[in-house]
């Protein structure tokens, strides 16, 4: 769990753009989260509808497949901003200053390249579906909106990557400045403590309630 709120006020234009973008990202991620919750409710309705009313939802699988696109793509930029996308830190954690920002910058540029290609060609994919009237198997719902969510989500991601690009360029020119608008490094102990609390563990008494007696 990352603390996005750590980038509070300040940071000039870059900071302001970052905050505005993050509000948008968070909104899309919440849509995705609510969608997953909706997926759960839909499944329950399907089970009980069939069991008690002999009336399963027609095209249930079609609805799930169409909706999944929103559930698994909309949060791309949000996850990127929070540093949630996985990577191997073996080397980067040992880098400091300019070298560190240089590696981060390269990662962002590579990301922008592949994301740009994907935006264009996933858009094409959606447009093929739109032009041909592509539809789902059972209920024959139109498919293009589901496919269109991919380039839209990737476009949001590319905006986020451009903000990161700006952020890392700024750090590259001034390596000791406070990072703004880039996925941040979290305070390790604070993080562990927060996680433990959220897991329902009594932090005041220590994680292992039997701590004094063990060993």
């Amino acid at each position: 769990m990352h603390n996005a709120a750590a980038t509070t006020a300040g940071g000039g234009a870059l900071g302001a753009i970052d905050r505005a973008m993050h509000a948008l990202e968070k909104f899309t991620a919440l849509i995705s989260g609510l969608g997953i919750f909706g997926l759960m409710l839909l499944g329950v309705v399907q089970i009980f509808g069939r069991k008690f009313f002999n009336a399963p939802i027609f095209g249930y699988i079609d609805i799930v497949e169409i909706a999944m696109s929103a559930l698994v793509f909309l949060g791309l930029a949000y996850t990127e901003r929070l540093g949630g996308h996985i990577r191997m830190e073996l080397i980067v954690t040992h880098l400091r200053g300019r070298w560190q920002w240089m590696f981060e910058l390269i990662g962002v540029i590579l990301g922008l390249i592949i994301v740009a290609v994907l935006i264009f060609y996933s858009w094409e994919h959606a447009m093929r579906a739109y032009r041909s009237g592509d539809s789902t198997i059972d209920a024959q719902y139109v498919l293009w909106p589901s496919k269109m969510i991919v380039p839209v989500s990737l476009a949001l991601l590319s905006l986020r990557l451009m903000i990161s690009l700006w952020g890392y360029l700024r750090l590259l020119s001034d390596p000791d400045a406070a990072p703004i608008a880039v996925p941040e490094v979290i305070d390790v102990e604070e993080q562990a403590l927060r996680d433990a609390e959220a897991a329902g563990v009594d932090v005041e008494r220590g994680i292992a309630p039997d701590g004094g007696r063990s060993g």
Binding site: A129, G133, D134, S135, I137, Q140, V142, L143
Partner: peptide, 9 residues
């Protein structure tokens, strides 16, 4: 054909 009726009406 049944994978995507819209693609091959």
């Amino acid at each position: 054909n049944f994978y995507h009726p819209g693609k091959n009406p």
